[in-house]
Structures are given as structure tokens and as C-alpha cells.
């Protein structure tokens, strides 16, 4: 079954293979895994705004309800998460930071400047 993608201008991850390829071929990767809900939409917007000034970072979304998104849902770093979206920051293929639920723009900028320094 083909799952729909999220209605955002971010690059869409649609499968585990997509994700593995993305983190294998790019040093700095952000995945926002959620739905088109009230807590998720602002986070996609933040990433959309940051994208033009952070060309070294690949910003992506991933529909939470896509069964293939279990690769995100089952991350040990997300085991206690109970709020959408799950935002995962990868560096060199490894999770370097993970957050749950809505984040403020300043918090996202702070994370990016720290983990992708």
C-alpha cells in the first residue's frame, strides 16, 4: 500500500530504505515524524524556514502512520515519547538528539547549533 505523504514543502521520507539511504549519504539529517496536526505543523514550518540557511543539513518529514515509520517510532531514544512530532537529529548515521512534541524555534535552533556544530 502506498501511504500518502505529509503536506509540507520538506523532502518526504516514505520508507525505511529511504531513511537509511538519507542518513548514510548525508552527514547531518533531521527527520520530523508526525501528522498534519496542531503540534506537528509548526515544527515542519520551523524546519522549512531553517532549510535555506542550513544547506549542509537535510530536512525531512515522515508520516507517523506509515508502517515504515516504525523505524522512527521504535528508536530507543523515542521509547518514552508520547507527543507528536518525534524529531530526530542524525549525524553520520547516528541519532545525536531526539525530541518529542512541539518545540519552540529558539529550542530547535539551539539544538541544531549544538549537535551539528
Amino acid at each position: 500500500m502506498n501511504y500518502p505523504t505529509l503536506d509540507t514543502p520538506l523532502h518526504h521520507i516514505e520508507s525505511k530504505t529511504d531513511l537509511e539511504e538519507m542518513i548514510k549519504t548525508n552527514e547531518k539529517v533531521v527527520i520530523v515524524c508526525g501528522r498534519m496536526g496542531p503540534m506537528c505543523v509548526p515544527v515542519y514550518g520551523i524546519m522549512e524556514q531553517l532549510e535555506p540557511t542550513h544547506s549542509d543539513i537535510k530536512f525531512n518529514d515522515f508520516l507517523f502512520d506509515n508502517p515504515e515509520a516504525s523505524i522512527i517510532r521504535n528508536l530507543p531514544e523515542a521509547s518514552r515519547f508520547r507527543g507528536l512530532p518525534f524529531t530526530i537529529y542524525y549525524r553520520n548515521g547516528k541519532v545525536v538528539k531526539a525530541t518529542s512534541s512541539l518545540q519552540q524555534p529558539s529550542a530547535v535552533k539551539q539544538i541544531i547549533s549544538k549537535v551539528f556544530a
Binding site: 496542531p38 503540534m39 518514552r80 515519547f81 507527543g83 507528536l84 525530541t99 518529542s100 512534541s101
Partner: peptide
């Protein structure tokens, strides 16, 4: 605990 036991959105969480 925000996002990890505390939520502000029933639709989302």
C-alpha cells in the same frame, strides 16, 4: 515531561 507524559493536545497525542 512535555511530550513524555504531559501533553497539550488531545487530537495529537
Amino acid at each position: 515531561l512535555a511530550g513524555n507524559g504531559i501533553s497539550y493536545c488531545a487530537t495529537c497525542d
